[in-house]
């Protein structure tokens, strides 16, 4: 088993000098995932923070084959790469084993890229799709996405006297991915790098498509101190807001069960996007969030316990 130091000091294909915001955790997510690959990687990247900050013309932070196409098509492009790779392999024009990766933000995954993702998972391409989930369109200034949590204040669902922010629950993207009967789907965070690394390894080794959702607290638009990214990552897990679990061949396994589940307020506190929820009139929103988090957690425990295949 690799140690944290070993994982993070392994030379990988993402160079320093990219232009991520101070306190952004996308870099560590990508590094941990690339470190988990013992083969050369080929990356397809959807439009979003990662794509923009690593490729400000005429520079590139990528030292591996990397392609960006349209916002909605990272999974389709990865499908194309995988198909071409298989064909080249069959004709004896390439003999190397490779890992094919797609990166997308939540906008490019839950929303506009969803159709391409679903198609790629259903066709069973041998690749791993990673969503770094910062819960909104953070590159364009905090518009809501299908990943934005209930109650969050965004620029297109602004909180005010009549609105408490986003009134819908987020999509359960991991279970949606698993419902394609893919061999591996998992949820991870960037504060628990070893867990993330292990999941990336499993994803790379899976025989078929793998899907990985990694929470990425966004200091810029969740509005918190840039030093607190990992703290919020951890709180998301300890409040059961973002459980660490995996679905292997349909079976749920929870990787971490917090001994004392913290109240959801602990995660909300100090985030500008949830500030309004601490007003008296919005108490019910936090209560509802807590209920939903608890309900989801209970459901996850039952799924694990029952061993039912999703």
């Amino acid at each position: 088993m690799a140690t944290l130091q070993e994982i993070m000091s392994k030379p990988v294909g993402l160079a320093p000098g990219h232009r991520m915001c101070a306190g952004c955790g996308i870099g560590s997510i990508v590094r941990a995932i690339l470190a988990a690959s013992d083969k050369p990687v080929i990356i397809a990247n959807a439009t979003g923070c990662l794509e923009v900050v690593t490729t400000i013309y005429p520079y590139s932070a990528w030292k591996v084959p990397w392609i960006h196409v349209t916002f909605e098509n990272a999974a389709a492009v990865a499908s194309g790469i995988e198909t071409a790779y298989k064909s080249l392999r069959k004709r004896g024009k390439i003999d190397k084993d490779v890992n094919i990766l797609a990166f997308g933000g939540d906008g490019g995954t839950y929303d506009i890229g969803f159709q391409a993702l679903s198609g790629a998972l259903e066709r069973g391409h041998n690749f791993m799709y990673v969503v770094y989930d910062n819960e909104g369109y953070m590159n364009t200034g905090n518009q809501r996405s299908a990943a934005t949590p209930y109650g969050a204040n965004t620029t297109t669902v602004p909180a005010g006297s009549k609105s408490f922010g986003k009134p819908q629950w987020r999509k359960n993207i991991v279970e949606i991915a698993a419902a394609h009967r893919i061999p591996y789907a998992a949820q991870a965070t960037n504060h628990n790098i070893i867990d993330l690394y292990n999941k990336a390894k499993k994803g790379f080794e899976a025989d078929g498509p793998a899907f990985l959702a990694v929470l990425q607290p966004c200091t810029t638009n969740w509005r918190f101190d840039p030093a607190a990214t990992m703290a919020y990552s951890k709180l998301a897990v300890e409040t059961n807001f973002w459980p660490l679990y995996e679905i292997e061949k349909g079976k749920v396994h929870i990787n971490h069960k917090p001994k004392n589940r913290k109240p959801i307020e602990e995660f909300l506190k100090g985030q500008g996007r949830f500030k309004h929820l601490f007003k008296d009139e919005n108490k019910h929103v936090i209560e509802k969030m807590q209920m939903m988090v608890d309900k989801e957690w209970e459901r996850l425990l039952k799924l694990e316990e029952s061993g039912i295949e999703l």
């Binding site: 906008g107 364009t140 200034g141 620029t155 297109t156 602004p158 005010g160």
Partner: peptide
């Protein structure tokens, strides 16, 4: 959302 016109939907949303 798309830059450089995000202020239009944001204004409408308010």
């Amino acid at each position: 959302p798309i830059t450089p016109q995000n202020e239009v939907p944001e204004y409408f949303s308010r």
